[in-house]
Amino acid sequence: MTLTAEEKRQKARKHYNASLDLCPARQLLEAISSKWVTLVMLALEDGQQRHSDLRKLIPGASQKMLTSTLRSLERDGLVLRHVTVSVPIRTDYELTPRGRSLLRIIFEMKEWAEEHMDDVAASRLEHDRHRLAFN
């Protein structure tokens, strides 16, 4: 069966294509590929953590960046926020089942980075030397 151009466009709309600018899958990839997302997810691996504990576990994360990252993860259904009324108010975060499923992939990326970092560092050094030689 031959499809008209309009039918092809409609069929294509049913499938996500992360290469397209406005594709929801692309937007999600952009959101979850942040280094802060990766570090927060790894910090939550062992269970609930307070906001203040997460700041200690993630050196270099400002309070603003951490809060923004946690809100984004909560919005995407990857993290749950628990507020306990006390003085001061206690806020804890934990991964959802969806977040745990992403954590598996993050672990694979982390392991890959640790396994290949020496080779990547050597490649970077060689590349930079080569560029300096021709500039």
Rank of each mutant, 00 (worst) to 15 (best):
T2E: 04
A5I: 09
A5P: 01
E6K: 05
E7K: 03
R9G: 01
R13D: 00
K14C: 04
H15M: 08
Y16L: 08
A18M: 05
A18K: 06
L20T: 08
D21M: 08
L22C: 09
C23T: 02
P24E: 07
P24T: 08
P24A: 01
A25L: 13
Q27L: 15
L28Y: 07
L28H: 06
L29F: 08
A31P: 00
I32C: 03
S34G: 04
K35L: 11
W36K: 10
W36S: 10
W36H: 14
V37E: 01
V37D: 02
T38S: 11
T38E: 15
L42R: 10
A43T: 00
L44V: 09
E45P: 01
D46W: 00
G47A: 03
Q48Y: 12
Q49P: 04
R50S: 15
H51F: 15
S52D: 13
D53H: 06
D53S: 08
L54I: 11
R55G: 12
R55I: 11
K56D: 10
L57M: 13
I58W: 03
S62G: 15
Q63K: 13
Q63N: 14
Q63F: 07
K64Q: 12
K64A: 13
M65P: 03
L66I: 02
L66T: 02
L66D: 07
T67M: 13
S68L: 09
T69M: 04
L70H: 02
R71F: 11
S72G: 13
L73T: 06
E74W: 01
R75G: 04
D76P: 00
G77W: 06
L78G: 03
L78R: 02
V79I: 08
V79T: 05
V79W: 06
L80R: 12
R81M: 08
R81F: 00
R81I: 03
H82Y: 07
V83L: 09
T84S: 13
V85Q: 09
V85T: 10
S86P: 02
V87H: 10
V87S: 11
P88Y: 05
R90G: 07
R90H: 05
R90E: 11
T91E: 08
T91G: 04
T91N: 09
E94C: 08
E94Y: 01
L95R: 06
L95V: 07
L95G: 06
L95D: 01
T96M: 04
T96K: 02
P97Q: 11
P97G: 02
R98I: 06
R98L: 12
R98T: 01
G99H: 06
R100S: 09
R100F: 05
S101D: 06
L102E: 05
L102V: 00
L102F: 01
L102S: 00
L102N: 05
L103K: 05
L103W: 03
R104C: 03
R104E: 07
M109K: 07
E111M: 11
A113T: 10
A113F: 12
A113Q: 11
E114K: 13
E115L: 04
H116C: 06
M117D: 14
D118Y: 00
D118W: 01
D119I: 07
D119T: 10
D119G: 12
V120W: 13
V120F: 14
V120T: 09
A122L: 14
R124N: 12
L125M: 15
L125E: 15
E126N: 14
H127K: 14
D128H: 10
R129H: 13
R129P: 00
R131T: 15
R131Q: 14
R131N: 12
L132Y: 09
A133I: 05
